[in-house]
Amino acid sequence: MADTAVLLEFVEKLKAENADWVADVKDALGEVTVTVPREAISGVCTVLKTAHGFDMLADLCGADRGPEEDPRFEVNYHLFSTTHHKRLRLKVLLSEDDPHVETVSSIWKTADWHERETFDLLGVIFDNHPDLRRILLPSDFDGHALRKDYPLRGYEPYSLS
């Protein structure tokens, strides 16, 4: 797990492909995080999947840094390879006014529900997603529950009727 030299090689290859794709690289706790501009996420994922063996999207999750932060939201893509068993994290940062990012569900089908969950709980909108509906919360739910400014117990008691 701790061997990040191989992972940094992948990052170098990505940089060689297109220098604009890698905004920042962080190597911490045995994991490598690549911050990617949001316009590039689709291209980066396609290259990593087809040329570098990251054929599985293990996880996709969003996080809220807090209403006072800008960029406020981050979307983390945890890539995994079923052949060389390495993991790589991609990170896209989004501002509160414009929380849009291109979907990766056309690259990995598994991203479909992960993106719906991230939309449901954080309000990040995945452009060109085939079916961006709420998944865990009811369709008439108001607000996005995992945002930091959403109170733990909600604004008012939720009624199913």
Binding site: G123, I125, L132, S139
Partner: peptide
């Protein structure tokens, strides 16, 4: 409810 979702066709 976010505006982006209202425009999408509902599978149901």
């Amino acid at each position: 409810m976010s505006t982006a979702v209202e425009n999408l066709p509902n599978q149901f």
